[in-house]
Structure formats: structure tokens, C-alpha cells
Amino acid sequence: MKPFLPLLLASLLVVPVSVFAGSDGAARGLAIAQESERRDTGWRDSTVDVTMILQDRRGQTRERMLRLSMLEKPGNAGDKTLTIFDSPPDMAGTLFLSHAVVGNDDNLWLYLPSLKRVKRISSSNKTGAFFGSEFAYEDISAPEIGKFTYNYVGDKPCGRLTCFVVERFPTYRNSGYSKLVTWFDTAEYRPQRIDYVDRSGRALKVLTFSGYKRYAGRYWRPQTLTMQNNKTGRTTILRYGNYAFGRGLSDAYFSQGNLRNIQ
């Protein structure tokens, strides 16, 4: 059972961010990111089905089916994520395991079912594409607070909402970006849009979040993520369905030794 009462109490205690924010942009930016994370704390574990649609510049598309499991870790421990590929059929059973690490490279493993081989891969290749998509490895890594420094730019309209616009500067090495301009809506502190700016200052990609729904009375989750790459002209769309929370997944489930038993 989910502890609904504590969650309700916690949500009553939400204090406007301006109370915390200092006068300078760095403190306010950090406070917004912290508030966004605080509101999304306590889900413990979650699973979701994903359809990944890859679209090239000629409009040709390919669909891949994935299942994601996530384990929330408190504070700076770093969340764990497991991705199961169900299609294309020759990739079915391929697994991607990620242990986020604050202040260092994430630990990533690939499981290749044809050889039953677990392969540790480098996460310094952060700019590398995640399975042919427009998402780089660093884009899908858990956005732990300690991985960035912040600068609050101002409030801007975003669709029907108003957004806090916060620049996030990666503190980890080998990022492909100089900054990520992240738009959080002022109503619920949900990320609505991220502008990825490459190291030479050019706008490289735009990620938009849409169709937010609330789960377990508290956790906002998008139904669609759209990543547009200005440089390649390609687009990747992620459609989410069947969100589930609090399934009781353990650390052992997210360990390398368990990979061969997952399907």
C-alpha cells in the first residue's frame, strides 16, 4: 500500500518557491529544481510501457517497444533504471541497465540475450545516441540535482501555462551540452520543455513534454515526449502507457546478476 496520508500531508506543506529563492538567479534556479524534485519524491518504484518512434528527415518512421522499470533512491544515491526491448524482434530481450551516480559517470550495462552476455559500457559517451534515437545517454539519465548548477532566467509563457525558465549547466565531464534550458510550469513544477544547447552555443535539440496526468494522486507523468534534433532533422517520439507505481521492486532486481533472469 502506498502511504497516502503522509503524501497528502506533504502536499499541504508546499510553500511557494519564492520564499526559498535568494535574490540571485543561481539560488532561485536551484530552488526551482529542488522543488520540482521534492514534488516527485516518494514513488519508490515505477514501471511504464514505451513506444519509441524514430523519424528520419524524410519522414520515414520506425517503431520500437520498450518497457521501463525505475527504482527511486533517496538523496544522492542515484536512481536505477532498467530498459527492456520488446521490438524490433531481433533486439527482443536486449536490456539496458543504468545506475545513476551523482558527481561521476553513471554505471551502464547492456545485456545481449543471444550470447547471454552482460557488457559494461561507457557512459562518458554521453553524447552517443540511445539505440539510434535522438536521445543521448545523458538525456535519459536521471536528472539528479547534484549533476548541474542552475540559473533562473525568468518566467515565460509556455502554452496555456507560465513557466519558470531555468538554465542547467552540467557539472559532469564530457557532456555534449553547454547548458540545458529547462522550462518548469509554475503550477506544478513539471518539466514542459528542454532546449539543449551544444558546446559551441548552438541550439541543438528541443524536447517537449505533453499530456501530463497525475498518478497515485500525486505524481505527474507525461504521455508523450518529443525530441527534435535541429542538426540532423530527425525526431524521436516516446509514447508512455500503463504507468504503475509501488510494485515493490528491489535493488536485487536492478543488479547485473539478475539481468539473465529478466524477460
Binding site: 559517470d105 554505471n107 559494461r120 559500457i121 561507457s122 557512459s123 562518458s124 559517451n125 565531464r173 564530457n174
Partner: peptide, 9 residues
């Protein structure tokens, strides 16, 4: 044994 550091394995 594998050491994963930067772009190097």
C-alpha cells in the same frame, strides 16, 4: 576485470 573510465574501457 574491466575498468570503465571516460571513453576508455
Amino acid at each position: 576485470l574491466q575498468l570503465t573510465t571516460g571513453d576508455w574501457l
